[in-house]
Simulated scan of single mutants.
Amino acid sequence: MVTLRSGTVTTPYSKEQEERAAALLREKKEKMEKRELIGQAKMLALLEEQEAKKRQMEEEMERWKKEQEEKMAVIRAEEEEEKEEVEEEEERPLERRRGGGSTSKEAEIAERAQEWAVHLKLGKDQEAEMAVPEEEREAAQ
């Protein structure tokens, strides 16, 4: 509406035109609000999807970490077993050299010494026995 100097009021549009324009403005405003709501809904859906994907990836990462830790534990256990086996193998020969081997050699030496002593005693006895008949032979001659 426009007020003129003369005091008359004129409107550039008719009532129908004003109502149509108001209806168009309302429709336009509703479309804008609807677009905003749709955009917000899309953004919300995208954010929810991202959160779900993030949770899924975190769960997969946890599973992967557990698998890797289990594999590492198995490898460490195998290494420990191998290390223990190697240590046992290294200790066995040392025990033989220190304890078992030297003790058996000492026993063997002692046994041989006893055998020699017995042989020597037998040898002296045999010598003595042989010496008596020789002396008797010499005396008889």
Score class of each variant (00 low, 15 high):
L46P: 03
E127A: 12
M72C: 03
R98T: 09
E138N: 13
E88S: 05
E115Y: 14
R98L: 10
R96H: 06
E87F: 00
E16F: 03
K71Q: 06
R63I: 08
K83F: 05
A41T: 09
A22L: 06
E62A: 02
V9E: 04
G7W: 05
L94H: 01
A45N: 10
E79P: 09
S102P: 01
G101R: 01
L120A: 12
A23H: 00
E85Q: 02
E62V: 02
T8H: 12
E129T: 13
E95D: 00
V132G: 04
M61Q: 02
E48T: 07
E70N: 02
Q40D: 01
R26H: 00
E87C: 06
L24C: 02
E127K: 13
A110E: 13
E135H: 15
G101V: 09
A23S: 07
E79M: 08
E134I: 10
K29I: 07
Q40N: 06
K29N: 00
A21E: 00
E134Y: 10
A52F: 05
E79I: 11
A110V: 12
V74A: 13
D125N: 13
R55S: 04
S102K: 11
E115A: 11
E91L: 10
K28V: 03
K34M: 00
E90M: 09
L44V: 07
G7K: 03
E88L: 05
A22P: 04
